[in-house]
């Protein structure tokens, strides 16, 4: 379904593969850069990587599904990663989460119907000094409150 909209950008992927092919153990780097092309790692992308590196596709898939920053299905344009670790928890992360859930109408692990936002948990972002904290794509936000998080979401 999503495939039709996202043609495989083979040329970019080949560049990435060419860059890393010779250095062993670069699978994570390749996956990270490959994901940047389409926002997720499609089956075709994983197969191409497997083929080029000469490792089984099942292994590439296993690595891609182990790390929480990798996605094997299409996600929203913006991924909201909210920290629910203890320091954020005791500073009210649950209220922030509840506000996000209410504002967007989705639960962690889900994507809004318009494909704009995905919501998920992250482990500690090391922003405990400004807890509760979250990330939206590469951007970090701290000192969250219900109001502030609503404001942030609306600004996207």
């Amino acid at each position: 379904m999503a495939k039709a909209n996202c043609p495989l950008p083979t040329s970019n992927l080949s560049e990435i593969l060419d860059k890393y092919k010779q250095s062993p153990g670069s699978l994570l780097e390749i996956l990270r850069e490959a994901q940047a092309i389409n926002g997720y790692l499609s089956r075709e992308v994983l197969q191409l990587i497997a083929e080029e590196l000469g490792i089984p596709e099942s292994k590439v898939y296993g690595v891609a599904t182990f790390y929480s920053l990798f996605k094997t299905t299409p996600t929203g344009q913006y991924i909201i990663r909210i920290c629910e670790s203890a320091p954020c928890h005791i500073r009210g992360a649950q209220d922030v989460l509840a506000t996000i859930e209410k504002t967007l109408g989705i639960k962690p692990g889900e994507t809004t119907p318009d494909g704009k936002f995905s919501l998920e948990f992250t482990s500690c972002l090391g922003l405990c000094g400004v807890a509760p904290a979250m990330m939206i794509n590469d951007q970090v936000f701290g000192n969250l409150t219900g109001d502030r998080v609503r404001e942030i979401i609306n600004s996207f």
Partner: peptide
């Protein structure tokens, strides 16, 4: 790429190896 366990030294090594 998002895995707390990689702070464990042998898991970290596995991760560096891809």
């Amino acid at each position: 790429a998002g895995a707390y366990i990689c702070g464990e030294e042998t898991a970290l090594i596995e991760s560096i190896e891809g």
